[in-house]
Amino acid sequence: MFISGIKDRFGRFARRYTQLIAAVLYNLNIKGFFTGKIYQGDIKGLCAPGLNCYSCPGAVLSCPLGSLQSGLVSAGLKFPFYAVGTLLLFGLLLGRFICGFLCPFGFLQELIYKIPVPKLKKGKVTRILSYLKYVILVAFVIVIPLVKLAPGFCKYICPVGTFEGGIPLTIKNEALRPLLGFLFSWKMFILALVLLLCMFCFRAFCRFVCPLGAIYSLFNPISFFGVRVNMNKCIGCNKCARDCKLDVRKVCDRECVQCGECIGKCPTSAIGYGIRYKDFRRM
């Protein structure tokens, strides 16, 4: 299966709608935003594929990264097989297609990037910075939870928790306000920095910081579904990588969020969404 004629119909707008629908589906507990209480139903044991804080009053699913860290904190007692297996499954099936289509924070960053200010272009520096997310993954998601018994990324970095959980909960829940201290100020600073950076730099958080994207990027070369190149049509002009706003070197490499922007730009219509292990192989 190879869908290359989607550039007009299933292109940019379809992706926007998919991102919007995913954000709404992850946060269906609308009541929570008014009451300042989080959802406590049974389905919260399921992990969402994208980065969406489980302490968001609207969240009906769990954050996969939060679940992994929380599992690693208690790994001395029990290894988090379920959280690791879920991440592995998402990565194998969709890779970073999740970043491009199913992540609410990625969607927010793309909306912020629409603000008309001068834009930073990709280059050597952004390419080097793209490795930072792997350092953050190892240090804050794996080492700190195992050694310091604290969810390092959630506690010290995650701007999603501040944006989706911290701000709405402290607005509606008076009991939490006296507990706010330096850590909250620090996380507000990180959030402001990330949002500001996203105005100038396309998906700055996804490219340089997000450990979930770092995990999924490892599966991009083997993921079941995603952007594929028909090598019979490809003339090797590299326009796809050149025109991409991300630090990709070729379609579907570790940095590719499989947004499909290159589909309409390919002069020979060689790029499309498809299933691997059929007729088409990676460029």
């Binding site: 302490s55 988090p80 379920y82 959980g165």
Partner: peptide
């Protein structure tokens, strides 16, 4: 195996309580 081992329940139990670290309380 994770579900059989109680992993689903563990994730749910963590997720239904406000995560102080996530929201910046500590």
């Amino acid at each position: 195996y994770g579900i059989a081992d109680g992993g689903f329940r563990d994730v749910k139990n963590k997720a239904i309580r406000i995560c102080n670290e996530c929201i910046g309380i500590g």
